[in-house]
Simulated scan of single mutants.
Amino acid sequence: MKSVLISQDLSCVGQVSSEVALPILAACGYQVGLLPTAILSTHTGGFGNNTYLDLSEEMKKITNHWHDAGIDFSAIYLGYLGGGAIDFWLNELEVVDNQFILIDPVMGDHGKLYSGMNNEYVEKMRQLVKQATILTPNLTEAMYLLNKKISLDNVDLAQARELAEELIEKFALSKVIITGIPLNNKIGIVGVEDKRAWSILEDKLSGSFFGTGDMFASSFLAGVLAKKGLKESAQIAGEFVKIAIKNTPNDQDRRFGPNYAAGLSYLMEECKK
C-alpha cells in the first residue's frame, strides 16, 4: 500500500484542501497521513472573517516524532501552505531523497491572488516548485510563477502549452499540468511531460464551486499513484469533478463545494483497473 503525506490547511467548514484530499485518497486505498499547515474556521471564500491558526511552529515537532517512530511516506502532496509552512517545506524538501512530490501551488485564481497571499509568497513558491516531480498550477498560478501578465480570456491551448514549457525550462521540471484554462464553453487542461505535450477539453458546467481544484489534484494524484499515465489521470480527475458537480443540488450553497462523494465509486473503480 502506497503511503501519501498530505500537507495543506484544514478548513473546518467548506470542502476544500485536506477536507477533500484525505477522504479521496483514502477511498482509493492509499495510506494517508496529514501534516496540517493551519486550521481555519472556514475557507477564505465568502464566509466572512474566518479564524486562522498557524501551525508552522508545530510542523517540525510532528516530523521529528515521525522520524523517531520510523514513519515515512512514499509520496508527498503539497497544496495550500501559507507563509510559515512554505518556509518549513523550503527547508524540508532540500533533504528529501527519491520521494514522489506533487506540488499544487495554491495561490490564486481568476487572475488574482487569494486573500493573504502576496509577492513574497509567490517568490518563495518559485523556489519550492523546483522540487516538484509533478507541478499542477491553474492558469493564474502559472502566470504568477512566470511573472507574466496575460488576459485569461485570450489564452488558447497553444499559449497554455507554451506556459507549461516555460515552467519546465524555468524551474528545471519534467512534468507540468496546467488546469482551469477557460475556452468559451469549455475548460482546458494542458500537460507537458518529458518534452511531449497533450491537451484535454471538457465541457464547462454551469455554476462555480469552491474546492474543485483540490478535488482535481487529489483524484489526479490517485490516478498517478495507480500507475495511470498523466493524461489518463487528468481525464479521470476531470470526470470525477464533473460527476460531483452534476450530482450537487441546484439550490446548494456553492461555498460548501460540490458533492464529491457521488464520484468516489467511479474514482475507486478507475484506480483499480
Results as ranks from 00 to 15, higher is better:
Asn64Asp: 14
Ile76Thr: 03
His67Asp: 14
Pro137His: 09
His110Pro: 03
Met107Val: 06
Ala69Ser: 14
Thr63Leu: 01
Asp87Trp: 00
Leu157Glu: 15
Lys61Glu: 15
Gln159Ala: 08
Leu90Pro: 02
Leu157Phe: 08
Ile71Asp: 11
Leu167Ile: 01
Ala160Gly: 15
Trp89Pro: 04
Trp66Pro: 09
Val155Ser: 11
Val155Trp: 09
Asn91Thr: 11
Phe171Ser: 07
Thr63His: 03
His67Leu: 12
Thr133Gly: 06
Asp156Ile: 07
Ile86Pro: 01
Lys130Thr: 02
Arg161Tyr: 00
Leu167Asp: 04
Leu78Ser: 13
Asp104Thr: 08
Ile134Arg: 03
Glu120Asp: 14
Pro105Gly: 10
Glu169Phe: 00
Gly108Tyr: 01
Ser74Tyr: 02
Asp104Pro: 04
His110Ser: 11
Asp68Ile: 00
Arg161Asp: 10
Met117Gly: 00
Asn147Lys: 15
Leu157Ser: 08
Leu81Trp: 08
Val122Asp: 11
Lys148Tyr: 11
Ala158Asp: 15
Ile150Asn: 03
Thr140Gly: 05
Val155Asn: 10
Leu163Met: 15
Val122Ser: 11
Glu141Tyr: 02
Tyr121Trp: 04
Leu113Lys: 04
Ser115Leu: 02
Ala160Trp: 07
Ile103Leu: 06
Ile101Thr: 10
His65Ala: 14
Ile71Ser: 10
Asp97Glu: 13
Ile86Gly: 00
Thr136Gly: 07
Asn64Leu: 10
Val129Arg: 09
Ser151Glu: 15
Lys130Met: 01
His110Gly: 03
Gly116Val: 00
Ile76Cys: 02
His65Ser: 15
Tyr114His: 10
Asn138Val: 03
Leu81Cys: 09
Glu92Thr: 08
Phe88Gln: 11
Phe73Asn: 03
Gln131Ser: 13
Met107Asp: 08
Asp156Gln: 10
Ala160Ser: 15
Ser74Ala: 07
Lys124Asp: 06
Lys112Ile: 07
Glu165Met: 04
Asn119Lys: 09
Phe100Trp: 12
Gln159Leu: 13
Lys124His: 03
Leu81Pro: 06
Asn154Trp: 02
Ile76Ser: 02
Glu92Asp: 08
Ile62Leu: 08
